[in-house]
Simulated assay, not measured.
Amino acid sequence: MHPGFVRAPELLPTPRAADLPADRLSGKRCVWCGKPATNDLSARVSVVKGELLRWEPRSCSYCLCREAKRVYNIHIRTCARCTHRDYCPDSRALYELGFPK
C-alpha cells in the first residue's frame, strides 16, 4: 500500500455500533469513553437492528492515543511485513498517531 493512502484512525477498531448510545453513534461523544469528541475516526458501516447503518465515530484525544498505541503494539507483533528494522506504512501511521512528538 502506498504510504500516502494510510489513514491511521481508519485502522482502529471501534465498539459495536449496536451497543452504543445515540450520542456516540452521531459523533458528538467519544465512541470509547463518552467524553466530548474532537477526532474523526472516518465513516464506518455496521448492521444495527437488522439494517445497514453508516455512522461516523469520533473520539477524544486521550482515547485516540490509547487505542492507537494498543493497536500498534498488536500490529508490530503480528504483521508479516514489519521487522525490527523496517516497519510497514500501517505501523508507521499508527505509531505517529499513538506516540505524538
Rank of each mutant, 00 (worst) to 15 (best):
Y95R: 12
T78D: 06
S61N: 14
G50F: 11
V45W: 01
V71K: 02
A93H: 09
T14V: 15
P9N: 09
V45T: 06
C65W: 01
D19E: 14
A80P: 03
P21Q: 11
I76S: 02
T78H: 08
Y62F: 12
R29F: 03
P100T: 09
T14H: 03
Y95T: 08
V48F: 00
C60P: 04
E10H: 10
I76H: 01
L94G: 01
S46W: 03
S59P: 10
N73Y: 06
L64S: 03
K49M: 11
F99P: 08
P3E: 15
K49F: 07
A37F: 07
R92A: 04
L97P: 05
C79T: 12
L97T: 04
G4W: 13
C65E: 12
T14S: 07
P3R: 14
A18Y: 07
L12I: 12
S46T: 04
C82A: 02
K35W: 08
P9G: 08
N39K: 10
A93P: 09
A8V: 05
V47Q: 11
T38L: 09
T14N: 05
A93E: 05
R58F: 09
R85T: 14
A68V: 08
H2L: 14
S61Y: 09
R81T: 09
M1A: 15
R7E: 13
R24H: 02
L20K: 02
S61Q: 14
T78L: 07
A37R: 03
P3L: 13
C82H: 07
R54K: 15
V6R: 00
C63R: 02
I76D: 01
S42G: 03
A18M: 11
L20D: 02
R92M: 07
P13W: 06
D40F: 05
G27I: 00
L52F: 06
P9L: 07
T83K: 05
S26H: 07
Y72N: 13
S59A: 15
R44M: 12
R7K: 12
L12D: 02
N39G: 01
